[in-house]
Amino acid sequence: MNENTADHSSLGIEAPEEITRRRFFEKLSITLASFCAAVVGVPLIGFIIAPLFRKPPAKWVTLGKVNEFQIGKTVSVTVIDSSSLPWAGVTAKSAIWLRRESETSFIAFSANCTHLGCPVRWLEGAELFICPCHGGVYYYDGSVAAGPPPLPLFRYNVRVENGEVKMNPVVVPITTTS
């Protein structure tokens, strides 16, 4: 070791940092510990955040026959999430408010208030959606009538096909600050 050092200095080359046995084991231990943490940690975090990357199925959901819905009426329709996990039970179900505008035109409203997501109720006589949580009110077309909601009721894509009303799968619409 000393000979090497002497050689380097005589040649004008800076001597490499001397790694002691203790320093080597220290670095080795930290490297191995980091490796072990990564081996365990990466799949662990991936497993926990996996639902973030689960995309809703592109399949259209049938809400019912067209003639089951009256023009000018708004009704709640139960939707079953076909992509739900086997143990979802009743939580695989959700509901939307469906309004028939004309012979071929429907509006599918999310049942979630855009304020904080509580379920809005349809009051037939008043033609209003009202939220029980903080009193948000929407008109029959989903536009905000009163209260704290920052946005109109979310609308799902809906279409009529082969005499059936269909919509995109239900997702909980998230109101953002942007």
Binding site: P51, R54, K55, P56, D81, S84, L85, P86, W87, A88, G89, T91, A92, S94, P169, V170, V171, V172
Partner: peptide, 9 residues
């Protein structure tokens, strides 16, 4: 939510 809506997760 554990996904796009309430469910098994």
């Amino acid at each position: 939510l554990g996904g796009n809506t309430i469910g098994g997760a």
